[in-house]
Computed example of a mutant assay.
Amino acid sequence: MTVLALRALGLGDALTGVPALRGLKRLYPDRSLVLAGSDPVSSWLQRLGVVDEVLATDGLAGPPPGRSVGPHTAVNLHGRGPQSHRLLLDGSPDELIALDCPDAGFRSTTVWRADEHEVERWCRVVRDAGGSCSPEDLRLDVPSTPSDAVLVHPGAASVARQWPPERWVAVVTALQEAGRRVMVTGGPAERELCGLISKPTGCEDVSGLHDLDSLAELVAGAALLISGDTGVAHLATAVGTASVTLFGPTPPQWWGPAIDPNLHTVLYHGTEPGDPHADRPDPALLSITVQDVLAAVSPPD
């Protein structure tokens, strides 16, 4: 019988689900673990041995993934429902492991908790089913070549989590004046944003040049990553690269680094969650100053 886990989300979300996936492999060592998830992230996790197979799934659209795998246990690591629960139930699983969701007609003793770290939430779902996992399972073994580069990643999926470009320019300028080598990273859709930082500073711009495998190797080998609350920050946590992460609107106690506090510095001046889908930078994010970031990068002796 197959174990089908649904987590059809982006890089950061997928990485926070890795401990739960490893817990499922321990719980069902003799079964194939299939991840219904988004590519290229899901296939990358398969290459790293986190899952056995991938069933490419575009969010919650399309037919129920369970119809393609025969007899199976379905595990909802995607959300609290009801849509994700219904998608899995429509695949006729022999068993569903998921959070309690009366609206989907599914009851469980494992209930949603709003004020909970994302890693712990999905670990709890698997532990309640009998599996063993913890934040320590976040770690990924990625090949790398060590370098002295400081990576600056200015982009994020929503404008609410994007620190202003002119502040990134000030940070990069100060780092270069201090003799640091700086590289700006980003996906193909972020090349224009990265150009706003690389052109006035003359730093190396590698935005749009890396697939996920080579980006992971770049991050794993870097001396430091500075970014907002986005997928590449979770990648730094997974590969053990020192990081400085600027948070807002989402509090770091929900999405911040869950391991190695000595490696990761979190900057957050908020008092309550903001709108993660807003069309302007969150006020808590804007309250982080250039000097805050530079102090985090080079703390006083």
Results as ranks from 00 to 15, higher is better:
Leu4Ile: 09
Leu6Asp: 04
Gly12Arg: 00
Leu15Val: 11
Ala20Tyr: 00
Ala20Glu: 09
Arg22Met: 11
Arg26Ala: 07
Leu27His: 01
Leu27Lys: 03
Leu27Trp: 01
Arg31Pro: 05
Gly37Gln: 02
Ser38Phe: 10
Ser38Val: 13
Ser43Asn: 12
Gln46Asn: 04
Gln46Tyr: 11
Leu48Tyr: 12
Val50Tyr: 07
Val50Asp: 10
Val50Gly: 10
Asp52Leu: 04
Ala56Cys: 02
Thr57Gln: 15
Asp58Lys: 10
Asp58Leu: 09
Gly62Tyr: 07
Pro63Arg: 15
His72Gln: 08
His72Lys: 11
Ala74Val: 04
Leu77Asp: 05
Arg80Gly: 03
Gln83Trp: 09
Gln83Thr: 10
Arg86Glu: 13
Leu96Asn: 02
Leu96Phe: 10
Ala98Thr: 12
Leu99Gln: 14
Ala104Ile: 05
Gly105Ile: 08
Arg107Phe: 04
Thr110Pro: 00
Val111Ser: 05
Ala114Ser: 00
Asp115Lys: 00
Glu118Gln: 12
Glu120Lys: 03
Arg121Asn: 07
Trp122Cys: 07
Arg127Pro: 06
Gly130Ile: 04
Ser132Val: 14
Ser134Asp: 11
Asp141Lys: 14
Val150Gly: 03
Ala156Ile: 06
Arg161Lys: 15
Arg161Tyr: 03
Trp163Phe: 12
Pro165Gln: 12
Trp168Cys: 12
Ala170Pro: 11
Glu177Lys: 11
Val182Tyr: 02
Ala189Thr: 13
Gly195Met: 06
Leu196Glu: 15
Ile197Glu: 08
Thr201Asp: 11
Cys203Gly: 06
Gly208Cys: 12
Asp211Ser: 05
Asp213Ser: 05
Ala216Val: 02
Ala216Trp: 05
Ala216Leu: 02
Leu225Asp: 05
Thr230Lys: 01
Ala236Trp: 04
Ala238Val: 07
Val244Trp: 03
Leu246Met: 15
Thr250Leu: 10
Pro252Arg: 11
Pro252Cys: 08
Trp254Leu: 15
Asp260Met: 02
Tyr268Ser: 06
His269Tyr: 13
His269Ala: 14
Thr271Asp: 14
Thr271Cys: 06
Thr271Arg: 13
Pro273Tyr: 12
Asp279Phe: 08
Arg280Ala: 15
Arg280Trp: 11
Pro283Phe: 08
Leu286Glu: 13
Ile288Thr: 10
Gln291Gly: 09
Ala295Asn: 06
Ala295Thr: 09
Ala296Phe: 01
Ser298Ile: 03
